Amino acid sequence: MKTIVRMNKWANAHTSIGLDVLRIGLGIFLFWKGILFAGQTKELTHLIAPDNPDATTLILAHYIAMSHFAGGILVAAGLLTRLSLAFQYPILIGAVIINFTGAMDALALTQAIIALVVATFFLIIGSGKHSVDYTLKMNV
């Protein structure tokens, strides 16, 4: 816990608009992917289980779409950033794995790797100084 508090203090002392733009960009990207996945549920279920899609696969596809949709909004606003990225993390790891084991799409693989790296960064340092989390913490 002391390590997280120390990283938060460092992040708040060294925050910049660039980090906030990066966080907001990640949130918008996740939100956009959530909208795309919601509109392409059949293709998403085929990616998850190409041989035998069942009810579990459909539930997982809906979880991915809604998690990206809601998580993207929360990350962009800087509200519950670490929690929402913790829900995104298994999805992003799965996206990287699917692109390596299945038919490799270079653009999708690049997007997944970049999103995973940026999500890991914000999972560690938090939402930063210009966020709803920081504003709520300072006003309580």
Rank of each mutant, 00 (worst) to 15 (best):
L79G: 03
L80S: 10
T120G: 10
L80A: 14
P53A: 10
H14K: 11
F31R: 01
L79R: 02
I93S: 05
F87P: 01
F121H: 06
G128W: 05
Y89A: 15
L36M: 14
K2Y: 09
F31G: 02
I35P: 03
G126F: 01
H62S: 13
Q111P: 10
A119F: 02
I28C: 02
A95E: 04
G94M: 07
A55Y: 11
V140E: 15
I114D: 10
L123K: 09
A61N: 10
K33M: 10
V75A: 02
W10H: 12
R23V: 04
V5Q: 13
F37T: 04
N139F: 15
T45V: 15
Q88L: 04
G94N: 08
D20A: 13
Q40S: 12
T3K: 14
W10S: 07
L58M: 13
I125K: 00
V75F: 02
I28P: 00
N12M: 06
T15G: 14
L109R: 04
V132N: 08
R82I: 04
T3N: 13
V117L: 08
G72E: 03
A115G: 06
G72P: 00
K9G: 14
V140G: 15
L26W: 01
A86N: 10
A49M: 09
M7K: 12
I93F: 12
G72W: 03
A86S: 13
G128K: 03
K9S: 14
P90K: 05
I64V: 15
K9C: 15
H14T: 15
K2W: 15
N8H: 10
I24S: 05
W32Y: 13
Q111H: 14
L22G: 03
V132K: 06
I93N: 06
L19Y: 07
W10L: 12
L74V: 03
L19V: 03
Q88V: 02
